[in-house]
Design a binder for these strands. Structure first.
Lengths: 168, 168
DNA sequence: CTCGTATTGAGATTTGGTCGCAATAAAAGC
DNA sequence: GCTTTTATTGCGACCAAATCTCAATACGAG
């Protein structure tokens, strides 16, 4: 549990924005920080219920938006299989990574690339976009799915984290 | 009307895959090539109906998938406002571009960046993805939406095309 | 502790997209 | 050209994801 700073930040955000601090909001915070990778609202709700927590679906959806507004969670649809639902992910102060997702099986790999980050900024500036709040996503095919006789189905929705700054 | 080659390609694809050439398919082809930017299935359907064409919603959806399978149209959700629906775009032989989309107003700018394309390939290879079929999307904020007192709403859903190879 | 009001829960509703099936119409064969 | 076969169409029902409504609840200011 090293997300104490983050919880402080969440509380500060809530109070600063005139929102109340409710048991549901804290529980949701805990849950999303307990989760490892990308998770959707439905799964999050199920996970909480199965722990005996009483929280409604609507509340999960509503408060996820709050968590995103506070800057502590990101919400995005990743391409490929799982793009039917929004996926949420907790954010650790300032740390940013981008996503490489397999268009066939939905596998997600997180990566950090200084090179691409720089170009991203260039491109934004060149086209009248401000160079902040980027989100970059590359949709491609993982080796397994690209293999000749690939089954082309959801194999394992695992997300692995790539070592920072591969130098690429 | 310079999309004669493309129509040939579509017909070739249909026959090659054992599909029939129907009036609806040709009409849909014409419509998507008559459209300028990204358009969703619902809008496409409405546009066709308003021209007096009789085609059902289901048929539009079904045949859009076909058009994508033929390689003549792309289907993707772009981040930001309009990410509720899939957006379609006709594809001119082999030409590829990526998207820069405003997370607030949904404005989309198309760009081509050799530099980013190269890094994309590197990153794919580095993480066990095959370096083909990329789709790269940068979500950020356009100047208008990032401005201090921005209204933060859908201003104009126009898509402008950026000149090829900015050298960036 | 009391009170005003934001928040919650349950279910209805909306939205985007797919499905099942009878009617229709490509296109192959004669 | 006329059948025959069978993919395709259109319609409405259906499904999933997310949002909304509104009465009941509970946070937190005073």
């Amino acid at each position: 549990m090293a997300e104490i700073r983050e919880k402080e930040q969440f509380l500060a955000y809530l109070r600063g924005a005139g929102h109340r601090v409710t048991a549901e909001r804290l529980a949701l915070f805990d849950e999303i920080f307990a989760q490892h990778g990308h998770i959707d609202a439905e799964e999050l709700h199920a996970a909480m219920r199965s722990q005996g927590l009483k929280i409604s679906r609507a509340t999960v959806y509503r408060n996820l938006d709050l968590l995103v507004a506070s800057g502590l969670a990101s919400k995005q649809r990743l391409g490929g299989l799982r793009d039917r639902r929004f996926l949420y992910e907790h954010v650790h102060r300032g740390q940013h990574h981008d996503h490489l997702v397999c268009a066939a099986c939905g596998r997600v790999v997180e990566f950090v690339s200084p090179g691409i980050a720089a170009l991203q900024t260039e491109i934004c500036r060149a086209h009248g976009f401000v160079p902040t709040h980027h989100t970059l996503e590359i949709r491609s095919l993982c080796n397994a799915c690209a293999a000749p006789g690939a089954t082309l189905g959801p194999s394992r929705p695992t997300a692995q984290r790539a070592g920072g700054g591969t130098g690429v």
